[in-house]
Design a protein around this nucleic acid. Sequence first.
DNA 1: AAAATTACTGAACACTGTTCATTTTGTCAA
DNA 2: TTGACAAAATGAACAGTGTTCAGTAATTTT
Lengths: 203, 203
Amino acid sequence: MSIKDRKDRDREKMKKLILDASLKLFISEDYSRISMRKIAEKIEYSPGTIYLYFKNKDEILYELHNMAFDKFYREQQKVNSIKEPFEKLREHGKIYINFAINNPEYYELMFIMNATGIEIEKKSNWYAGKRTFEFLMQNIQECLDNGYFKSHDVFSASMAMWSFVHGIVSLYLRKRMAMIPSENQKDVMFAAYEFFMINTGKK
Amino acid sequence: MSIKDRKDRDREKMKKLILDASLKLFISEDYSRISMRKIAEKIEYSPGTIYLYFKNKDEILYELHNMAFDKFYREQQKVNSIKEPFEKLREHGKIYINFAINNPEYYELMFIMNATGIEIEKKSNWYAGKRTFEFLMQNIQECLDNGYFKSHDVFSASMAMWSFVHGIVSLYLRKRMAMIPSENQKDVMFAAYEFFMINTGKK
DNA sequence: AAAATTACTGAACACTGTTCATTTTGTCAA
DNA sequence: TTGACAAAATGAACAGTGTTCAGTAATTTT
């Protein structure tokens, strides 16, 4: 079975080669201009070869989306150093916002891009998204246990928190803060975030 | 000068013809599949002709974005029937969310699409967005005047409100609520909205 | 060494936005 | 009405896109 094993390994290596090249292209170039031919050129194979390893472009983007979630999940864990639930949550949101600002291409794949959204819907289980959301829910539960928030519905509270931070960064990333000078946009984002936290956090 | 007048009118008519055809295509077809050739075919002109009236596709999309904002602004005015500021704001948000659910293509143009975002950034003044945002700000100011919200920064409060409703609908539109059965997603959205309103609204 | 299997290629198909030389249509003075 | 000019419209061409598949090359098995 050793030949089969090697072939399996080679296949995984090739997939990784394609994904790594795709990710590099996705981050460096304007992400909308990533193309199968450019990926092929980067790995020095013909365009047709990629289709022997991935069904289509969307499947590649979905894999990049998973890689992006892994990166975010690692960042997310940093909140564990804070014990007080609400301070932990405050940091949680900040990490989210900063991740989006510093890694707009990753954020695009995870939460904005239509192509990945369609793939997410196709699969019966959105592991990556679920894991991150459930980690947030834990933090919200801790807050509820300590008397924060009026409601006791963890799910609604978590969705609200997520919606808020997603809303603010996606307005920013999609240039819908055009009424604010660009040098002030980040400050406005964090001011709005503080407003949200102060008002919802009232015991 | 009457010939020039007629020519000006003809030119405006032609622009309207192109925009109306574009809007119809944009709404009926999958919006990502709208193409200059399809617009040309619909109005029974050659593709090149469109470029005599619009610089490029993005300019057409920007005009559609303006038309979408007009439609939303009209819906937004309905809140004026409610006098109590906070109840008015609650309705304001509901109108926003329902607009996005019922007109996903318009919402796409206004707040999500990258092409329009780039055009918005190019123009020095985002009239459409400003008008809608300022109308929201008025409502928030009324709330502040009546003792709602802890902060007294109208701008941050308005950005927070907008971010929240935008966040929730864009997660929904981009299929990032995949962990929730689709038949429940709308309920979850409104539950999260209620959470937000109840918690931030505490006097 | 020959046969069978697997891996890879690159031309081809049907699209996309955009440009521009060429043709058609409209206007106006003689 | 005719000829000259200007304006409007055309559609082929360019450079790109995702994807497919008959044909070739390399590898493995017999």
